[in-house]
Every structure is written in C-alpha cells, then in structure tokens.
Amino acid sequence: MGFRQDFEPLALSELHGFAESRRAEGWRYVQTLAVLTEEGVDLVYSFMKDGHLANSVVSIGRDAVVPSISDLFLAAFVFENEIHDLFGVTVEGIAIDFEGSFYQLANEAPMTILSPEQAAAREKARKVAAAKAAKAAKEAGGASDAPAAEGGLEAKLAAMDPEKAAKVRAAMEAKAKKEAAAKDAELEERLKAMDPEKAAKVRAAMEAKAKRAVSAEEGGE
C-alpha cells in the first residue's frame, strides 16, 4: 500500500455534504486544523482511505459560522472546540461543546495575535520576493545592472540575521556619509574657484534642492 497526500480547496457551503459523502464511502477522519491567513482563517480537514491522505482546505473569513461535523465524526469535537478557543472561529452544533472553556487561557483567541516583529518580518519577506520577481522580469527584458545589484543587496540584507543586517546597514550609511562629505568638500573647492555671483546662485539652488528633498521625505513618511 503506497502513501500519497494532496491538498484540494473546498467551499464552506459544501463542507457538511462533503463530510457525509466521505463517511458513506468509508473514509477515516484524520483531523481538523486552522491556519491564520491575511484574509481570515484556512481550515484544513483531512481524511484517509487506503493510504491516500486527502486534505481539504476551506478558506473562511473571521466572522464565518462553520457547521460542525461532530454529528458524523464524534472525534471532531476536540478539534472544533480547540479552533474556537484558539482562533475565535464560531462552530455551530458541536456534539460536546465546552463553549469557550476547553482551554482556560490568559488571552482570547491567542493564535490570531500576530506580534509586530513577526508582521514586519513577513512584510519584508513579501517585499524581497516581489523584488526578486521584478528583478527576474527585468533581466528577461534586459535592463541595466545598477538597480538589479541594489535589489540583490536588499535581498541579501533581508535574508541575513537582523542584528548583522543592522550593522551592515549602519556601515553602509557611514560609508555613504563619508562619500557625501567628500563630495561636498570637492564642491566647495570648485565654488571657491568660481565667479562669486555664480557661486552664490549655485549655493542657493543647492539649498532649495536640499529643502525639497527633506519635505519629500517627511511627506513620504
């Protein structure tokens, strides 16, 4: 007997009928679990027959009401109580319903609380993946090397240990400051050598540019 597994999507409205047909065909109920997603919660129901592990993924919003399958499979009551307590999913008609006191917890629906660091880390990973995809598309179109190189560096930093990445960034900033200071010094030399009126105009233009850059940054924040 071989073993294989697959994942199939399933609509919430078809859930109870699907479970009934599984029972009629002699499938064994394996488990129910919940995963937190951007849009809401994904419920994965698993059944097994003759070595085939079939996982059905039901995507629901946080406020959806899920029909219980514990009338067909009594063993499901454990998992349905658990997803109610940990994820805040409402399940109707559980055979043995603990009504929220299956686990006595410090916070409500703790698995839905995503810490800010985690949310930031996932955002970053998404940006890195998007940057990689954009880079691949650009290379296919034959773009220049410079933005690609930066995208690659960003990706490297994102994949690094955060402390190390912070150190690298700090080193990069320091280097950039040094370069900018060197550039300023060079420009000063050139201005001194220039005509004084022209030098004053150049300085005024530079200040205006700097002001605009600062306000753009603030506006962007």
Binding site: Q31, L33, V35, A75, A121, A125, R126
Partner: peptide
Amino acid sequence: NGTKHLDRMRMRTPTSQNLAG
C-alpha cells in the same frame, strides 16, 4: 511563508483522536 520561520506548524497527536473513544 518564504521566511526561515514557518507560517504554521501543527501536530495532531493520537490521544486527541482517542478522547472520544
């Protein structure tokens, strides 16, 4: 989820299945 951290890890153990029994 693309990072070194898994998005979700779940273990369904035999005793939870056997509680009904």
